[in-house]
């Protein structure tokens, strides 16, 4: 076991740097340390000016996503021992504008998330005294997988279409839309279909599948998008065969 391991970390301080550049730090190697531990060691002991987002340290909050050796990873789940002998390259998430060091601007992602209306929409909301909207375990199972998303944006950093087409709504947002479409309490699948049936929505996806590969919560966004496409294709076929039918 080596005593130390090197981290090549992207630094960008807009007030002094013209463009992002790597800075190398030597940190102690411990086999129970993840990349986030090494970053925190740098922040605490070597260079307090290094900026990065993190919170829970246990793969729940989705804050600490970064590129580790070129792959989108939750740094709290990326063990240093998997990157021996180093150096470990740590960069901000691909395709997002860098605000400072490893922190990216997620404004555009937040806009895309709200665009797909990821909340339960009903034509008629029951009064409180009617009780809760009940759901069977089977009804829950249909969307549960897609509800595990923690908005870590690793799928956006992995998707080549996100890089090529800035308007593409992207994997997590479409998976979330599908999560509400499949929810038995929701009644707005048609509305979301209209929002997403264009090139910025589901048809922008060319089924590369990287989103599902990198998802730390096994949400399978690629699967959600293909399900959504099938619904949209059947809808298009129906309106082609029965153009006078009510939509």
């Amino acid at each position: 076991m080596p005593p130390t391991i090197a981290l090549d970390v992207i630094r960008y301080r807009p007030e002094q740097d013209a463009e992002p550049a790597f800075q190398t730090y030597e940190v102690p190697f411990r086999d129970d340390w993840v990349v986030l531990d090494a970053l925190n060691y740098i922040k605490d002991r070597l260079d307090g000016s290094l900026s990065f987002r993190w919170s829970c340290r246990m793969g729940v909050c989705g804050s600490c996503g970064m590129m580790v050796n070129g792959k989108p990873k939750l740094t709290c789940a990326a063990f240093l021992s998997d990157y021996l002998p180093g150096p470990v390259r740590v960069e901000p998430l691909n395709y997002f504008p860098i605000m400072r060091d490893l922190i990216v601007d997620i404004t555009d992602f937040m806009r895309k998330l709200t665009k797909v209306k990821p909340w339960i929409i009903r034509d008629q909301v029951w009064p409180l005294e009617e009780g809760e909207y009940r759901q069977t375990p089977e009804q829950l199972d249909t969307y549960k997988q897609f509800s595990q998303c923690i908005n870590c944006m690793l799928c956006y950093a992995a998707c080549p279409i996100v890089g090529l087409e800035p308007e593409f709504v992207g994997p997590a947002a479409i998976a979330l839309a599908q999560r509400y479409n499949l929810d038995s309490r929701d009644e707005a699948a048609g509305e979301r279909l209209k929002i997403l049936s264009d090139h910025a929505g589901i048809w922008g996806c060319t089924f590369v599948g990287e989103c599902t590969q990198v998802c730390p919560k096994h949400v399978d966004p690629a699967g959600a998008i293909q399900q959504f496409k099938l619904t949209a294709a059947l809808d298009a076929l129906k309106s082609f065969l029965v153009p006078w039918g009510t939509r």
């Binding site: 264009d198 090139h199 048809w203 293909q226 496409k229 298009a236 076929l237």
Partner: peptide, 16 residues
């Protein structure tokens, strides 16, 4: 590139 009306049909063939 714009999405033509054909896209859903072409995707159905792709998928099948």
């Amino acid at each position: 590139m714009t999405t033509g009306r054909l896209t859903p049909f072409l995707w159905t063939l792709f998928s099948a």
